[in-house]
Design a protein around this nucleic acid. Sequence first.
DNA 1: CGTTATCCTAGTTGCGCGGTAGGTATTCCA
DNA 2: TGGAATACCTACCGCGCAACTAGGATAACG
Lengths: 146, 146
Amino acid sequence: MMFSTKAEYGVRVMAHLAKRDDDAPVPLGSIAEAEGLPLAYLEHLVQRLRREGLVESRRGARGGYSLSRPAEAITMAEVVRALEGDIAPIECISADADGRLICARDGEVGHEPCPTKLLWTRVQGSIVRTLSDMTLADLTRSPTPV
Amino acid sequence: MMFSTKAEYGVRVMAHLAKRDDDAPVPLGSIAEAEGLPLAYLEHLVQRLRREGLVESRRGARGGYSLSRPAEAITMAEVVRALEGDIAPIECISADADGRLICARDGEVGHEPCPTKLLWTRVQGSIVRTLSDMTLADLTRSPTPV
DNA sequence: CGTTATCCTAGTTGCGCGGTAGGTATTCCA
DNA sequence: TGGAATACCTACCGCGCAACTAGGATAACG
């Protein structure tokens, strides 16, 4: 597998929130119970989502979490990136500030650019593209139209 | 990162072999030295490639490895799958014998199919598609035409 | 004030990645 | 015919990180 359970669980939490799009916050405990996931662990994940501005929290009794934007305005690329960090197929590929892809192996051995760079940048591009083309709202519009 | 160094190193070995497409086998030691990678580790990786029929070996002095097919006939999907195992974005998504994608969470909680399945199957599809559309020969045709 | 919740910091545990080590089998060449 | 040179095989290992758990502090509501 390529993404960890951070992405798996975190996406399920977001999908859960997207279904209840009334503004009332949902306590994480009820999500954990409904999804069968450990609450203490979800707390870590949802903090990442909050720091990236994808969810808002209300503390105290009758508190909980809610989406900070309508589901149509949240791309899955944002969600996954918040949970997993930068999306790169392998270690040596990363994006600089401008989003341009750089390969750590380039110029390492002295001669031409790393021949495998082409492969990994294409893979990276296709992953990011499909994640960016999909919003949270698309997840709620099941049952799965493939 | 999503793929381990198995894929990274293994692809580099294959790319190395693709450049020398004269039929003489290349000893792994020379590849390890040229690429700056540990020989003993590469031996494990190249065994996976051999068991999947992607490379052929000749033992003994003047032995080594060579591609078992022309580079144009080896897709990167085959290479990566030989090295990493089945390609799945997360644990709960896997392919059955017919290549149909199944989600381990489906029907787990009792109600509707897992709403996140749509996301992960799309990601899986896009990864496999880009890996399948590319052959080893494409890697040798650098310098990187993006 | 007590209950319900988020928030924060620290552990803990198991496992798999990224190797090493050492030996055996096979083939070429002088 | 006997080394070299190579592939092949099995076993082992250390360390980092994923996947949690624990326990408390803080805040809001009734």
